[in-house]
Design a binder for these strands. Structure first.
Lengths: 147, 147
DNA sequence: GTTCTTGCAAAAGCTTTGCAGGAAG
DNA sequence: CTTCCTGCAAAGCTTTTGCAAGAAC
């Protein structure tokens, strides 16, 4: 993720007539810099290196707004905090054992989305939730797990 | 879900050499009776009609154990409490607007599971997370949502 | 100047944990 | 009688909210 995406996101903000505040600028820059999979807490800490006055609750509120405006995507995880990233075209798979987060292109889900829409009248928003499973390294352990 | 599934789950328990306690029996029966999509809290309340001494934390611990033993599936939701059901062969889709929970046969996900395994070295456990999106009734509102 | 945001503190919601007493086998 | 499970109380963690002060336009 590059600086360019931050610039683009900020441009969108202005184009939509939103106010550009320090918190919003920092959140966007933080998401652009800290390589993607960031929780609100980590993001707040990162921002506070430079702007100690920016509160965690402000970060939450800012992330909410940016999500509502389509600039940021929130990904919920079953265990622990949600993570956020600048809106893009990939989905997430999370290893339930080690927490490793992998990226999968959105196109892999096109079939599924279409089938759910056609047969189950459901409009799947796959980006909103991380998919859980086991990465290659831990898939084997799953078999032995029922102890 | 029928009484038969409860009997089967209890039999499994004994066969595995686990102890059959009141809490475990009630949790299994509760899941078999209360028609599927139950949170720990609701389950505890249901149980407490008959056994007021059974504590919510016991219900959580019991559900944890039953999940670990493969008898129960926990489904995490982005907003609000996880729900539980006796292990079965379908997945869940949840409307982000109205909370409606729909069931989708597991077979719909076979392709996806196979592709993730083959190309991304990831062993997807689709049952562990509810898929988020919009039901037919609310899909239209999604378009107008960016305000 | 008006409206939208923020900082702070407090609370909410769901879930987990420590410990000592108690039940299951 | 030994091991595992439970009740209770308390805390944990993430997230939300009310309100008055402050910033953006």
């Amino acid at each position: 993720v590059s600086k360019a995406e931050a610039v683009r996101a900020i441009a969108y903000l202005r184009a939509d007539g939103r106010r550009l505040t320090t918190a919003r600028r920092m959140v966007i820059e933080g998401l652009a810099q800290t390589d993607e999979h960031v929780t609100a807490d980590i993001l707040a800490r990162w921002i506070q290196h430079v702007h100690p006055e920016i509160h965690l609750s402000t970060v939450y509120r800012t992330l909410d707004s940016l999500c509502a405006w389509g600039l940021v995507t929130q990904v919920h995880q079953p265990h622990g905090a949600a993570f956020f990233h600048l809106a893009g075209a990939h989905e997430h798979v999370v290893c339930d054992t080690c927490g490793h987060i992998g990226d999968v292109p959105a196109s892999e889900f096109d079939d599924l989305v279409k089938r759910l829409r056609d047969h189950y009248d459901f409009d799947l928003d796959i980006r909103h939730t991380a998919l859980i499973g086991r990465c290659g390294r831990h898939a084997a352990e799953e078999a032995r797990r029922r102890v």
